[in-house]
Design a protein around this nucleic acid. Sequence first.
RNA 1: GGUCGGGUAGCUCAGUAGGCAGAGCAUGCGCCUGAAAAGCGCAGGGUCACCGGAUCGACGCCGGUCCCGACCA
Length: 312
Amino acid sequence: MSQLETTPARAGVDTPVVIVGPTASGKSEVAMSVAIGSGNTHIVACDAMQVYRRMDIGTAKPTMEERARVVHHGLDLVDPSEVFTVSDYQANARQAVSEIRAGGARALVVGGTGLYLTALIDDLQFPGQWPDVRAELMREPQVDVLYRRLQVLDPIAASKIEPSNRRRIERALEVCIGSGQPFSATGPGTGAYPDNGVVQIGILWDRQKLAERIEQRIHRMMDEGLLAEARELRASGSLSTTARQALGYRELFEHLDGDCSLGDAVGDMITHTRQFAVRQERWFRRDPRIRWIHVEQDPVSEIGPILAEYLR
RNA sequence: GGUCGGGUAGCUCAGUAGGCAGAGCAUGCGCCUGAAAAGCGCAGGGUCACCGGAUCGACGCCGGUCCCGACCA
C-alpha cells in the first residue's frame, strides 16, 4: 500500500466493468446475459484473436445474432494478413470505451488476453518501435551476445529478463538502441496493479471441469465447421504472425499441410487450449484487484447477478 | 508350438566393460510493456515386467515365469 493519496475504489458509471477468466469459462455468455438485462451496456471484447475477421468459429467470436442484440466492440478490426499489436488494441479499445461513455451507456469488458486488458485499464505506455534496429538484432545468431549487450545498456531490464528469453531481450534492446533511453525507464510494467477504480470479476472453475468444457467446446467447433474455416483461411493468402498461431487454426494447418492426422490435430488443440487456459489463470491470479467467483455449474446464473449489480 | 525382437517416468523412447537412472512430451508452479492464443524459466514424478541365482554391488550377467510385436510352422 502506498502512503500517497490514492483514488478510492469505486464502480462509477464512467468506469468499465470487467469480467475475466480462462478460455471456455463462459465469460461471453455471462456478459451477453448481463448486457441484455441491463439494456444500456455495450460489450468490449479483449481478445487478441477475435480482432481478426474470418476467424469466427475458432475464436468463439459472438455470433451475428448476438451482436445484433448487444453492441460489441473490439471484433473484426483487421484482416488476418495484417499486423495488429497490443498498442493498436489499446488505442482502439480506449476509443471504444470513451465513445460508449459519451453515449451514456456502460462498458462491459470481456477479458481473455491479459496483456491487452492491462493495456486497456492500466496506463501502460508503449515506447515505440524501431523495425530497422529489430531486424538487425534478429540477425545475431547468439542469444547470449544480445543478453550481454542488454546488461550493458540496461542492467535493470536485463535483471528482469531470463538470459534465454530471446523475444524479450530483443524488444528491450530495440527500445534502448532506438530511443536512446533504457527500456526499464518506460514505466512500472504489468505488475503494478494501481487502484484504477475498475471492477474486475473473475470466473474460477475447478481445473478438471474446465478441461472438460474445453474438450467439449473444441468438438463443438469442429462440428460447426472449423476445419472448413481453417481451410479457407489458409487458401486466402498469407497470414500475420499472430493470426497464424491462433489455437485451433495452427493445429489444423498442420493437418492440412499433411503433417499429422486430423485426430492428432484435434488432440493437440485440446492439449494446447488447456495449457493456454492455465496460462491465462496464472496471468490473472497475480492481479489482487480481481474478485474471483468460484463457479460450479452455470456461470450465467452463478455470476450474472453479481456482475449485474455493478452495472446498475 | 518354434525363432528373433521388446517390456525403464502419465506417454514415446534413450541408457550403463556391473558402481546413486536420462531426454522429449504431458502435469504442477513462476515470469511477462508493440507476435501475448506468443515467448521464457523452475519443479515433482521410477519396485528399470515378475521370481530366483552368481557378485562386495544388478536395470544391466545367468536360469525361469508372464505380457507385447514380427517372422516360421
